[in-house]
């Protein structure tokens, strides 16, 4: 395992299966350490499937290589954090925000041990870093959507991961939470962590991320945001042509609606 190995490297990955077709046909990419990358593409492009497949949470049909820090996932488990879509969770669970954040430390605390004072203090620090220290004792079900998303990010951060994989962290999140989350992720990246997030809103990609991966079943482009999200590339991915940057967002939504239909 070399020190310069990319945090995540994927070579010719094919994953997921629905109605006689692969969801992700072919994807190859490597993330640079400390980079912030948005995974964009129309609905049904396989963004979530790609993220889950590399983590072993969705079936991989075939892959030449999926490596975390140059090794396999098991060796890197403690360095990788995954933040699923907020909607995948039943928020009526009887737990406080601090309880949920402390769940990020379960593996570190180890089997048969209780969550001690140190862990709870660490959970409170993580909640503080996402601006929710005041909510530590609140039931998670009583928080707003944006606050719930911040709790999930705090649960990931509490284990101090080197690679953060997020599924739609900004979906249905209020503006204040979105700005807060973006700055928290930015700060992690500045300290060397790598961030890869499935992202929906083409308007805010440039604001939150340095790099982008454009996916529509196959990987279409990977590089700096400006180089990836060109009109020509977006037309190829979303199936519309000749829009200016200002018009892009509504057009992108129309493209998604088509993809859904």
């Amino acid at each position: 395992m070399s020190a310069t190995a990319p945090p995540l490297e994927v070579v010719h990955l094919r994953a997921g299966y629905v109605r006689d077709a692969w969801i992700v046909e072919d994807a190859s990419f490597a993330l640079a350490a400390g980079s912030m990358t948005a995974l964009v593409g129309p609905n049904g492009a396989g963004k979530s499937t790609l993220l889950k497949a590399v983590l072993g949470l969705a079936p991989i049909v075939r892959a030449e290589r999926v490596a975390f820090f140059g090794g396999d996932l098991d060796a890197a488990r403690a360095r990788v954090a995954f933040i699923p879509q907020r909607s995948a969770i039943d928020w009526d669970f009887p737990a406080t925000a601090r309880d949920v954040v402390a769940m990020g430390l379960v593996a570190r605390i180890g089997l048969f041990r209780r969550t001690g004072r140190d862990a709870l203090a660490a959970a409170e620090r993580a909640l503080d870093s996402v601006g929710l220290l005041g909510m530590a004792r609140e039931q998670v079900g009583e928080l707003s959507g944006g606050q719930q998303q911040r709790v999930l990010v705090a649960r990931a951060l509490v284990a101090e991961p080197d690679l953060l994989l997020l599924d739609e962290p900004f979906a249905n999140v209020d503006a204040a939470s979105e700005a807060h989350l973006a700055s928290v992720l930015r700060a992690r990246a500045a300290r060397g962590s790598t961030v890869l997030a499935v992202h929906h809103d083409l308007r805010s990609v440039r604001a939150h991320f340095d790099e982008a991966i454009l996916l529509n079943r196959a990987l279409l482009a990977h590089g700096p945001v400006a180089a990836v999200l060109t009109d020509a590339r977006l037309a190829e991915a979303y199936g519309f042509v000749g829009v200016t940057s200002a018009e892009r967002a509504p057009a992108a939504r129309a493209g998604e609606a088509e993809a859904r239909a």
């Binding site: 072993g56 488990r77 995954f82 995948a88 969770i89 737990a95 769940m103 379960v106 593996a107 048969f112």
Partner: peptide, 22 residues
Amino acid sequence: ALLAKELAALAFDPLHARLSLR
């Protein structure tokens, strides 16, 4: 008593637990 912490993490968010638990 022995497994509450792991079971809670698994019940709350199975996807996350499948990655974080051994």
